[in-house]
Design a protein around this nucleic acid. Sequence first.
DNA 1: AGATTTTGGTTGATAATGTCAACTGACAAA
DNA 2: TTTGTCAGTTGACATTATCAACCAAAATCT
Lengths: 148, 148
Amino acid sequence: MKENIGESLHRLMHNYRHQIRAAALEADIAMPVTHIRSLKCIDKIHNCSAKDISDKLSLDKSQVTRVLKELLTKSYITKASNPENHRSQLLSLTDSGREQLSRIMMLEHTAVERMTRNLTDHQIEDFIRISNIMISDSLSLTECDKQN
Amino acid sequence: MKENIGESLHRLMHNYRHQIRAAALEADIAMPVTHIRSLKCIDKIHNCSAKDISDKLSLDKSQVTRVLKELLTKSYITKASNPENHRSQLLSLTDSGREQLSRIMMLEHTAVERMTRNLTDHQIEDFIRISNIMISDSLSLTECDKQN
DNA sequence: AGATTTTGGTTGATAATGTCAACTGACAAA
DNA sequence: TTTGTCAGTTGACATTATCAACCAAAATCT
């Protein structure tokens, strides 16, 4: 039974991305999922840094650098140097970024709503809880990885 | 709460792949996850065709063609023309493919075992059941897509 | 203080995965 | 026989992931 977890994950992931992407296209918003996730992260974390994104989203630092570069050129975010620490940088959404994000959030919400329409709130909570247990179990094994 | 499903999925997926890949590397088996999944599919489905793989794994046909080509050159599988239908092809594992797969399955098993070590069997079943509901819910919305 | 290490971020290179459209040959329906 | 569908292939490209080398700021050590 356990052996099926991998396949379930793959298929679920695939469908989830597909939903999000399709919804975005329908609304004439063309943005890769990674960019969306990054925007959300910047919105959520006050004075967010690239490191924060890399940590929260499990993305490689280099990937983050590139995503941020694109978000910058599209003027969805701004980058300010941190007076407290000149290594890091303070990221924040511009008005247009915030606006874009809120449109995306609505789309995502309806997509998730569809995907979960046959689930009870209880099941959804279970699902997230179980996911988080598995995530932290995997992480506790890779703590030797200084990467990311 | 529901909004977190996406992030949970991403992180879980990322960690799962990482585990599998790390385990494979440790055992000197270098094979992309998609190839592994395809091998498993061919092993599971008797007289498997490329279409079967595309369907079961939610992979694009073109992706499947390329994966099969590589598996062929590595002699993990064989391709025979179907006497019943000259459009499709019968895929099957070679001895070396079968051997490789069984080694991988052991690795994956321990990886999954680790990831789920703090979960009860009941929780795992729940997780898979809920996943499958979400998958079929998404699929029922994209049935207009003739692609894949 | 000066030397060393760590940290946050950047760049380059490349692998793996996903998506789309055009195309072939075999088959099916009309 | 024409037309349409199906399984698979190919080309082109976008997105995501991984790794190593690198820089400058900051923390640590001695």
